[in-house]
Design a protein around this nucleic acid. Structure first.
Length: 585
RNA sequence: GCACCCGUAGCUCAAUUGGAUAGAGCAUCUGACUACGAAUCAGAAGGUUUCAGGUUCAACUCCUGACGGGUGCACCA
């Protein structure tokens, strides 16, 4: 059963069009239209089908209008402009759908027709360092996408592909051997490791010999050297415990945490197979994948086109000349593992925009390898500071995630203290946690992920505008009404008197459609926009439509239904963004 | 140099993927609280969508070319 009027209408038009005009190709689609002068939904099917069908748009539109003249849910459709057809639902249809929605435990979210087994690869911090602000977007976006895809009926597997095996560990090992201190490590593991890592990293910039030594330590680790292996185990255990605390705080969950190290044994096999299949070859001592000339040079991820049109190789290296393996090698092994062991049909990687080339090459290589898996790179922009450069502390260091979360809670707490000075401290702390972290998560997802965004505490924690506190407050208002009036009786008859009640109803009925739109191109900001509009309509409804003092019982019941549904949808929507709600604030 | 991304109100962003008069929020100005919670609402003002061409019945959206910004370009992840 579906409660989406829009979805139903689209199905009806589609059916009609394919029955009467099977050659019309792409078929119709329907647009919600906010402007009352044009009705509520429109289709431009007649416009786009004209060329194929050799009819004028007006004639075609008229046929569509005739076909829907007596539809029980619709007022007679109207042709507008050069060939748009506008549909308006009868109020009874909306009332009926609203009643159905109020009894639907899934709030109108319908499952996809063909569920897939989808793996989400996100967060993936480098465990040689503490988690910092650079990890937050992947972590939050990934979790939200996992929740949404799961709700739509997909079988979702989440995997945290920890960076626990790369050159950074060569540097940490080298640092520890030169200046490590067991006591310092025990006292504050991360601080100590990070100091060692940083000092080596700094030195490699001016001293190539150090870099070579670090690479050698990595190679020894990869080849199973007992000393390096034991040290590595110690480091990893300490790091993982620390990272886990952050995930618990942020309510992030992984089905698997298979770091790069997990695939170590598979790497030689991958390289051998790539060589045997002729996908990779030796070059300057390294093993790399080169262009197979099947793509036009401009779209070939293994080529760079020079000024005059000459091409230069941009190889995808899978084994270094010293024999060590890389990120790409591990990624290939990971894909194979996910296919053969986890039986995944589609993999989604949530990372920084800077890794686009890497994934283009990786995906192209995988395709040549003959791996039947749909691969998607969901990338996002950088978080900028007030100076429009990548955000960092005053000293120019990356901001630690833990400190960022602390500050979010702290700031939310201060605002709460100001607004509600009489609240018990314990309760206040709990609310500040939900609101502070919610604000942080919301700001991260409220805008198109492809854009860099400017980090701004005041904007994020503002209680108006497109922010988490505004949404949570709308939810709190719905709860406050229901506490005073009791739950709605449910069932028909319902009545919608005020225009804003109709608007709010239409918006609530579109919740399921919104989640589907989000997964189309993995854009959670569409859900943010939807929830913001829903909350704004509710506040408007709240000002205009008294619930407790409604004139009739039917009206009161209807308004309680709207309040409860709004609360449910807001709570569900926020949950899908990884954000919690509170009963009062 | 080449590739990818971006350029929309003073600021931060939308625009259902080519649809009707480009929408919000901040900030500014004007109004509404002995409250179903003012953490809210109503209203005003703010635009040659960086520029120049082209395709189309229709362009912020697609194509070409400028200009401006970000990112990445062989053994890092």
């Amino acid at each position: 059963m579906t409660t989406s009027l829009l979805f139903q209408l689209e199905q009806k038009i589609q059916l009609w069009a394919t029955n009467h005009y099977p050659e019309s190709g792409k078929g119709p689609w329907v647009n919600p239209c906010q402007d009352e002068r044009y009705g509520h939904f429109q289709t431009n099917w007649a416009m786009v089908s004209t060329k194929v069908l050799k009819l004028s748009p007006k004639e075609l539109a008229q046929k569509l209008v005739d076909a829907f003249q007596t539809d029980p849910d619709l007022l007679p459709p109207v042709i507008a402009g050069p060939g748009f057809v506008n549909f308006t639902f009868k109020k009874e249809a909306i009332l009926h759908a609203l009643d159905t929605l109020s009894q639907d435990p899934h709030f109108g979210i319908r499952c996809v027709n063909q569920p897939q087994r989808i793996l989400l690869d996100f967060s993936s911090p480098n465990v040689a360092k503490q988690m910092h602000v650079g990890h937050i977007r992947s972590t939050i976006l990934g979790e939200s996408l996992a929740r949404i895809l799961k709700s739509l009926g997909h079988h979702v597997v989440t995997d945290n592909h920890l960076g626990d095996w790369g050159t950074q560990f060569g540097m940490v090992l080298l640092g520890y051997k030169r200046a490590g201190n067991e006591e310092a490590l025990k006292a504050d593991p991360f601080a100590h490791l990070e100091t060692l890592y940083k000092s080596v990293q700094e030195e490699t910039k001016t001293n190539e010999a150090i870099l070579i030594q670090a690479r050698h330590e990595l190679l020894k680790l990869q080849q199973g050297d007992p000393e390096n292996r034991a040290l590595w185990e110690t480091f990893i255990t300490l790091s993982k415990a620390d990272i886990q605390r952050i995930y618990e705080r942020l309510d992030i969950h992984f089905d698997y945490t298979l770091g790069e190290s997990f695939y170590n044994n598979l790497l030689p096999l991958v390289v051998r197979e790539m060589k045997e299949k002729g996908i990779a070859r030796e070059s300057e001592g390294a093993i790399a994948v080169f262009s197979d000339q099947t793509l036009p040079p401009k779209h070939d991820p293994f080529l760079v086109v020079e000024k005059g049109g000459a091409t230069k190789d941009a190889p995808f290296i899978i084994q270094k000349s010293d024999g060590a393996y890389l990120y790409g090698t591990t990624d290939l092994a990971t894909i194979k593992y996910r296919l053969e062991t986890l039986h995944v049909e589609q993999s989604i990687y949530v990372t920084d925009s800077r890794q686009q080339q890497h994934f283009n090459q990786l995906f192209a290589t995988t395709k040549r390898w003959g791996i039947p898996m749909e691969l998607e790179h969901v990338w996002f922009g950088t978080i900028l500071g007030p100076d429009k450069t990548p955000i960092k502390t005053r000293e120019g260091k990356p901001i630690k995630l833990k400190e960022l979360l602390d500050e979010a809670e702290q700031r939310a707490g201060n605002i709460l203290l100001e607004k509600r000075p009489n609240m018990e401290p314990e309760k206040q702390k709990a609310i500040a946690r939900v609101v502070g972290l919610g604000a942080l998560k919301y700001a991260d997802q409220a805008q198109n992920r492809n854009l860099d965004y400017v980090f701004d505490w005041d904007k994020m924690l503002a209680f108006d505008g497109n922010t988490a506190p505004y949404l949570i407050n709308a939810y709190v208002r719905t709860r406050s009404i229901l506490r005073k009036a009791g739950l709605p009786l449910g069932g028909l008859p319902l009545s919608l008197e005020h225009e804003v009640e109709l608007e709010l109803s239409r918006k609530l009925l579109a919740y399921g459609d919104c989640l589907h739109a989000v997964t189309q191109e993995y854009r959670p900001h569409l859900l943010c926009t939807y929830l913001f509009e829903t909350a704004a309509l509710f506040h408007k409804f709240f000002e205009n439509c008294p619930v407790l003092r409604a004139e009739t019982d039917t009206l009161k019941n209807s308004r309680l239904v709207l309040s409860q549904l709004t609360g449910d949808v807001l709570k569900s929507g926020l949950w899908h963004l990884g954000i919690g709600t509170v009963e009062e604030m």
